[in-house]
Nucleic acid binder design. Structure first.
Lengths: 165, 165
DNA sequence: TAATTATAGATAAAAATCATCTATAATCAG
DNA sequence: CTGATTATAGATGATTTTTATCTATAATTA
């Protein structure tokens, strides 16, 4: 069981977007070139970020993507669900229903959800609550503290790209 | 990203084991027959539960599996890691290292772990801590409350199997 | 209107998951 | 001691998910 790499791509890209001036969308080509992946690949994640209301897309010449919300209003959890979907980590397969007494029709299927399922959902909500507290603004700020040279270089590159459109 | 069904099989089976008298291991055949899966399939999970010290295996005639700990000392988290392994949910793929300035060797790879990774690990620890508080004893007790008829039937069946060995 | 850009869908390789079957090793009952 | 029973290990294959790319289409603005 693993988080999708898509989450990693999305989080990094959102930080790039924080650094851009307002009303100046950046194209997927530049984002993909910087990340070293194909545009079609990265664009898939951005389509999902658009649907989740995290970024806004501007079609046509000099179009691209820009943040649709303030960075402090975009949580890690928002990004995770945008990319992976809303489905919970633990999907009860209801294997009880394949158990002997059920196969012999001694019991009917019961709608009542499995206890195990409820425990797992509760556990997941703890993970969720924590990820809701961490935002893109926080990430941006702390990256600047931790790896200032790389952040500077990254900002420089995107601003140049923006200028040359 | 999804939990393995193996966790579901394991949790259910462990509850069966709670219901058995001490020093009377039950064979994988009976467990598998009750669950409606092949013995070889279920035995895989039990091998992992043995390695995790959750159950004990008794080889030879009239052998089988029995709990290696008290049910109140087996947490959901123990079972999850026994089945899924210890690997954390979020594996940082370090996609930063494929980013333009790194490809151009402007920066060397840095050993320092990614900030995103640390956030994800912290989030996971919240999930972990909750799952550590829920035990097989708790599950057993609450299943008896929620679905007493099914629990009765299940106990009856396993005790009969034990008797006829 | 033509170039640019996002969007959608088709495709495919690789990895993980699910499930079974077979072979082997250990051990206990007779 | 021997043979039946049982756990353990490994091989196998089907199915699904993940990762990644390419192509085609639709929208828009310079």
């Amino acid at each position: 069981m693993q988080f999708s790499v898509g989450v990693e791509y999305a989080l990094h890209c959102l930080v790039y977007l924080v650094n851009l001036p307002p009303d100046s969308p950046i194209g997927i080509k530049d984002l993909a070139a910087y990340q070293g992946v194909s545009d079609s690949y990265l664009s898939k994640f951005f389509t999902q970020l658009v649907k989740a209301g995290i970024v806004r897309s501007v079609p046509g010449v000099k179009g691209g993507y820009e943040l649709a919300k303030k960075p402090e209003d975009i949580s890690f959890w928002n990004v995770v669900t945008a990319i992976q979907g809303e489905a919970s980590l633990f999907q009860c397969k209801e294997i009880r229903h394949n158990t002997l007494p059920f196969r012999e029709n001694k019991f009917q299927c019961y709608s009542e959800k499995c206890l195990i399922n409820s425990v797992m959902l509760e556990a997941e909500s703890h993970l969720k609550n924590y990820l809701c507290t961490k935002t893109i603004a926080w990430l941006h700020e702390n990256l600047d503290k931790h790896i200032p040279e790389i952040q500077q270089e990254q900002k420089r590159w995107f601003k140049e790209k923006l200028y040359n459109r």
